[in-house]
Computed example of a mutant assay.
Amino acid sequence: MTHFVLVAGARLGAWAWDEVAADLREFGHDVHPLTLSGLAEKQGVPAGQQTHVKDIVEEVERRELRDVVLVGHSYSGVPVGQAAERIGDRLRHVVFVDANVPVDGETFLSGWPSDEVRQSIADNGGFWPIVGAPYYAGQGLTDEQIDRIVTGSTAHPGATLTEPAVLARPIGELPATYIKCLLDGDEFLPAVAEALKSDRWRLVEMNTGHWPMFSRPRELAGILHESIAES
């Protein structure tokens, strides 16, 4: 049996995967949506980026999972990519959902203009604050879906965004699928573009926005299911 560990992006918890998880279980998979430290029901738990890497590795090891597909959305691609390296032969495949990817010694904020984010973290007690409904416009989401995201979001621990990643080898050496959500733009961050040159990476495009677990959950679950055939 393939075991999926699903990790949502900034401000979100395991709840964000409810629909995708249900569809994956219909495909016959074992599914473990994971809330990272400091978010959702784990608010108040101190967290840096390596805390989040540890969260993911410990989920795999605690449950004694093998044949694992790690799925990281947006910010969570950074800790998921590091965890994928650390779980060794337990890993089957990694899926990055419109995600940042880790580069040794660089942070989540590397590679894009981030002064505003850094200032926001400084002004909000070390947290990246939640954002309102207008932030999610133009991303293929209904008003109801946007309300779910906004209502369920929690401020994101800022240290997870500003601490550097630790990798022993380039991320392109891992077996991976990268899902690009086209409503969020068709350009790749430099680290993603470099990794996609690897013959171990496969690119899949979705005609939706940055939060496909809400806007296209069934389609996303199908892509995740198909990713194991490529591994």
Rank of each mutant, 00 (worst) to 15 (best):
V5Y: 11
L6K: 07
G9H: 08
G9M: 10
A21H: 07
R25Q: 15
E26P: 00
E26K: 15
G28Y: 10
T35F: 02
K42C: 09
Q43G: 09
Q43N: 09
A47H: 10
V53E: 03
K54H: 14
V57E: 03
E61P: 00
R62D: 14
R62K: 15
L65N: 01
R66G: 13
R66P: 02
L70E: 00
V71Q: 05
S74I: 01
R90S: 12
L91N: 07
H93Y: 11
V95H: 03
F96I: 04
A99Y: 05
V101K: 01
V103A: 06
D104W: 09
D104M: 13
G111W: 02
S114E: 02
V117R: 04
F127E: 08
I130A: 03
G132R: 06
Y136H: 09
Q139Y: 04
G140I: 12
T142P: 04
I146V: 15
A168W: 11
I171P: 00
A176Q: 06
C181W: 07
A191M: 01
A193Y: 05
E194W: 00
K197I: 06
R202I: 10
L203K: 13
E205Q: 15
E205H: 15
I223R: 13
I223G: 07
L224C: 08
I228C: 14
A229D: 15
